[in-house]
Amino acid sequence: MGNNSTLPSATRRLFLQRSLLALGAVAAAPAISAAAFADTSTGDAPALKLLNAEDYRILSVVTDTLIPRDGAFPLGALDVDLAARIDTYLEPEDTELLQGLRGALMFLEHQAPGLIGVDSPFSAMPQEQRESLLLTLRDAGGDATAVFAALRGISMFYFYTDEQAWPQFNYDGPLVKRGKPVYPQVRD
């Protein structure tokens, strides 16, 4: 693959730790309501913790490609504003991870389409073509697979841990209904 030298090292690390975001990071803010965003697709970004508007826009398209609406169940990534949910789980201390995520998004948006001879950015491609490109990345090996695995892992984890998704796949979820554990606030 000609793309192997084009990824920043942080993106490669993201690949190697592709569940980093999925498994980690303490949320400091509640997930933004999906309702306001559900019908706007990649419209105005909600208030974001760490992602910028461009990150958010591209990540929204990625999640929509990975978990589209309809099919086996109606709910899709856009319905829960999955990109915003992922943003809430990022931590400011984890700069490498954030850089890695940005690198993956930029690669997918601007360079990956060239792998299948398409000039337009990923987010401008039709759904079917976007899915086809992601499958191409999956099977390509090297950094292309890195990007696929990283973005897929994050998206699947945070979508299927969102309680809005649970009824869709016949999962009734935890028995206890509690919020996140509260960490003591310290003022030295």
Binding site: S19, T65, I67, G71, A72, R152, G153, F157, Y160
Partner: peptide
């Protein structure tokens, strides 16, 4: 459920069918 959702190589509607 979140970890298990990452199993398989599927995406899109195929993955939703699996889940």
């Amino acid at each position: 459920a979140g970890v298990f959702a990452q199993f398989s190589n599927k995406i899109g509607l195929d993955h939703k069918r699996m889940m």
